[in-house]
Computed example of a mutant assay.
Amino acid sequence: MIRTATAADVPVIHTMIRELAAYEKALDEARATEAQLREALFGERPAAYAHIAETDEGAVAGFALWFLNFSTWRGVHGIYLEDLYVRPELRGGGHGKALLTELARICVERGYERLEWSVLDWNEPSIAFYRALGARPQDGWTVFRLTDGELAKLGAAGA
């Protein structure tokens, strides 16, 4: 079962974010707090949205956390999937596909023309899973990121 996350889900979402970060060998980079997640997902102006996958018994199997982006080429919003995570012991049960199916349904319903995400190039099981769904990598594009000191330095240059 897939459902929209509620504020009561923030602790388990936070735990799963940390589980995902550990899987991606970057636990030290996962600094978001439960309070920050609560504000981002359920504050006065939500910046992100989340869905929860549950087992038939009602246990949380995984989550998808996403936000809107905008395509200047298409002229409409899309969904950027920030995190998709299914707990290791529950993988293979259709939870990941169900979460992506729900996001695709939202895109179609709302007239969004893209559902996009990034995946680590060493994460072969996820890459194979995404390819099996019909997703294709965007060859020729490289993700760039500014954080921490570099971000502060560039931001201060514009002040």
Rank of each mutant, 00 (worst) to 15 (best):
E82P: 01
A64Q: 00
T6D: 09
E44F: 04
V86D: 01
K97V: 03
E24T: 11
R131V: 06
D148K: 11
E113G: 15
T33V: 11
R131F: 06
E116R: 04
N69R: 07
F67I: 02
A156T: 07
L68P: 06
I17Y: 07
G78A: 12
R87C: 00
S118I: 08
R38N: 15
L81T: 02
L103P: 00
A8W: 07
T72W: 09
R31S: 13
T142W: 08
Y85W: 11
G94K: 08
E116A: 10
L84C: 01
A30V: 04
L99S: 01
G158W: 10
M1I: 14
L68H: 14
E109V: 06
L90W: 12
E124G: 12
T6G: 12
E54W: 02
R110F: 05
D148W: 08
Y85A: 04
W122G: 05
G75W: 05
Y80L: 04
L27V: 09
K153G: 13
L84R: 00
E44L: 08
K97P: 02
W122P: 00
R105D: 07
E150Q: 15
F63K: 02
E29F: 12
A98S: 15
L65Q: 02
G62D: 02
V119K: 03
W117S: 07
R131C: 12
R110K: 10
G134H: 08
H77T: 03
E82Y: 05
R3H: 08
L65P: 00
E29I: 06
C107F: 08
A135F: 08
W117V: 01
R114N: 08
T6Q: 14
H77A: 13
F42A: 08
V108M: 13
T6V: 14
L133D: 03
A132D: 11
S118M: 08
D28V: 09
A64S: 05
E29P: 01
A104M: 04
L81K: 00
H51S: 06
F42T: 02
R110H: 12
R91Y: 06
F42P: 03
V60T: 14
A21H: 04
R31Y: 11
L99M: 04
A132K: 15
T4D: 00
I127F: 11
H51L: 12
R38G: 14
Y85T: 00
E109R: 14
I52Y: 03
V12S: 05
A132P: 06
I52T: 06
T15D: 13
A5L: 10
G149Q: 15
N123R: 05
A7Y: 07
G93K: 02
Y23A: 07
A98F: 12
G155V: 07
L146S: 06
I13Y: 03
E82T: 04
G58L: 09
A47K: 12
A64V: 00
S71C: 10
A159Q: 15
P125N: 10
W141I: 10
G96P: 07
E89V: 14
R38I: 12
A156H: 11
A35N: 06
F129T: 07
A64C: 01
A64T: 00
H14E: 09
Y130G: 02
R31P: 01
A53P: 02
F144C: 12
W117G: 04
A64G: 02
A64M: 00
R74G: 11
R145S: 03
Q138C: 14
A135W: 08
F129I: 09
T55L: 08
L41T: 06
